[in-house]
Amino acid sequence: MNSKKHPIFLLVHNHYGVLTRVAGLFANRGYNIENLSVGCTEKPSISRMTIVVDCSESLLDQLLQQLRKLIDVIAAERADPFNSVSRELMLVKITHSPESGGQLLEAINIFRGRVVDMAPESLIVEITGEEDKLNAFIRYVEKFGIIELSRTGLTILDRGQVSLITKSNNN
């Protein structure tokens, strides 16, 4: 099976048990969720989910069809892999010492991160970007000592006039 990472997005009704229903469908049908982020939209009654799933092309089609059958799912579409903006936000708590200080702050600058908290021996960096950039930052600052980190998961929008709703109406 030709497995690949596919970002998809969903609009769902924002109420009790919807996340369980969606996540449960992945589990029931044997799909693995690589990445998941959920938040409300401009309409409080509707949430948007961005999910990255690792599966073959044909299984992806089957998965989208199954998701669309859930009563609480308003739209389920794949992101346009060549024409979309994807971002992730990460907070990293890094060990900080007078010796490493200059080098660390330089790296944060180059990666366009921001220091959002500072304690005598540690600092928290906020950094936004595509997945690769965050991974590269982690690799670079590992040598200073990462105390902990937290990532929000990918969030994606297609470029241009198109929206998830218009995309779904065309399908």
Partner: peptide
């Protein structure tokens, strides 16, 4: 929760 994988829809 118990019936979620075997039901078309449910209400609580």
């Amino acid at each position: 929760g118990i019936t979620m994988p075997i039901i078309k829809h449910s209400y609580s």
